[in-house]
Amino acid sequence: MSLLKLAPPDLDDDVAVSSIVLTPPTTRGRRQRRFRVPRLVRRIVGPLAVIILWQVVCSAGVFTSYEVASPLAVFDAGRQLAEQGVLLPNLLISLRRVAEGLGLGIAIGVVLAVLSGLFRIGEDLLDPVVQAARAVPILGLVPLAIIWFGVGEMPKIFLIALGSTFAIYINTFAGIRGVDTKLVEAGETFGLDRWGLVRKIILPGALPNFLIGLRLALVGSWLIVIVAEEINAQSGLGYLIMQAQTTDRTDIMMMGLAIYAILGLLADAMVRLLERRLLTWRRGFSGA
């Protein structure tokens, strides 16, 4: 044990003692009172910059128009196709395929997720099957889908449904299983029956995860519709792109891709809106 050594305070030190530097605890979020650029505008700036850069590069003659079409050329191609009455019908057909396939995929994914999320037996029976099916590359199923469903709309819708359903299933299942058991217990004590628990606690609790799944499913379904249409279709955006390839129309091909990009952006905005409306109860951090 050591004894404390006592010494008179050093008189030269007293300036240092009082010189604590004070700063405000945080500067984050305090600037917001100044003028704020609207959210929509801020979100458009990025894509716009990409388009401008793209145009500049093309105008500077870095690529030939066969290699890369400029944004203006792409726009022009779109206008021409629209005037010929080709663009809109094909676009609508693709949209419809996505909507139908996605609708089916969501329905199947949710039903499966609820069955295996709520019931142990459901999980034991369904989950291995779904996991195994998920491991099969969907594009590898294209030839089979044609054998099974012919060349009409069915194989496309089947492939899109399949491509979107897993994202929905996996995320919704995780959401259901992640619901706080303490809340379920509280619901039980306050007299919710089984169906009440599912409706008031379990499904709303799984909703945030479901929406994550929905985002992924949207991306997946666009991916699949274009491939399905390029391989085997007489209509749709993918078909237009394939046609353009045979005639060396880079501008049309890129227009098709640009439309996909725009639709992807819109779909994402839609899910965001949905999230904002459905998850208002969350007070979580949403970006500074």
């Binding site: 303490k182 619901g187 007299g191 609790g205």
Partner: peptide, 15 residues
């Protein structure tokens, strides 16, 4: 143990 996605009154009336 309030249900976060139900408003306060709905929580009170739960079940």
């Amino acid at each position: 143990r309030l249900v976060p996605w139900l408003r306060v009154l709905s929580n009170v009336l739960l079940g």
